[in-house]
Simulated assay, not measured.
Amino acid sequence: MTESEPLTINQIAKLAGITQPAATQTIALMVKDDIVKINTESKDGRHKFVRFTDHGRAMLPLLTAHWEATTEATKELESELPYSLTEIVKAATSRLEEKPFAARLKEAHQKKIGR
Rank of each mutant, 00 (worst) to 15 (best):
H47T: 14
V31Y: 00
E68G: 02
Q25C: 11
L81G: 11
H47E: 13
E97T: 03
P100F: 01
V31Q: 08
K14N: 11
E107H: 04
D33Y: 14
E41F: 01
L60R: 07
K75R: 15
A69S: 11
G114L: 03
P61Y: 04
K112L: 15
D44Q: 07
T19S: 15
T40L: 08
A103V: 13
R95Q: 06
P6N: 00
P61H: 05
F49A: 00
E78D: 12
N39R: 14
A16L: 14
S79E: 07
E87P: 01
T24R: 09
P61G: 05
I18L: 04
Y83I: 11
A108P: 00
Q20P: 06
F52K: 09
M1L: 08
V50S: 01
T2D: 08
S4F: 05
L60I: 13
L96I: 06
Y83Q: 08
V36Y: 01
E5D: 09
T8L: 03
K99Q: 12
V31F: 04
Y83E: 04
K111F: 07
T2Y: 05
F52Q: 08
D34V: 14
A58K: 09
M30Y: 02
E3L: 12
A103F: 04
M1K: 02
L85A: 13
E3P: 01
T8K: 02
K48C: 06
K75D: 11
I35Y: 10
S4E: 09
T26W: 06
I35F: 11
E41I: 06
N39Q: 13
A65W: 06
A103L: 11
K14H: 08
K90E: 10
A91Q: 14
F52R: 11
D34W: 08
K32D: 10
E80I: 05
N39L: 14
A13P: 09
N10G: 14
K37I: 07
G114P: 02
F52C: 08
L7C: 05
P61Q: 07
E107C: 03
N10Q: 13
K106E: 12
S4K: 11
Y83T: 06
T74Q: 13
D34I: 14
L63E: 02
I38L: 12
T64S: 12
D33I: 06
M1T: 01
F49V: 00
S94C: 04
M1W: 01
Q20M: 07
L29H: 07
K90R: 15
S4D: 10
E87L: 13
R46I: 12
A92V: 11
E76A: 15
E98M: 07
T19G: 13
G114S: 02
I88Q: 14
T8D: 01
T24I: 05
T8M: 03
V89W: 03
F101D: 12
E78V: 08
A13S: 14
T64L: 10
E68W: 05
L105M: 10
E3V: 07
P82M: 05
I88D: 13
F49S: 00
Q11H: 01
S84K: 11
T70G: 15
R57F: 08
L96Y: 07
E80T: 15
A65K: 14
P100R: 03
K32F: 04
E87S: 12
K43P: 02
L77M: 10
L7E: 03
R115F: 08
A28Q: 08
E107M: 02
V50F: 03
R115G: 00
V50C: 05
V31T: 03
V31N: 02
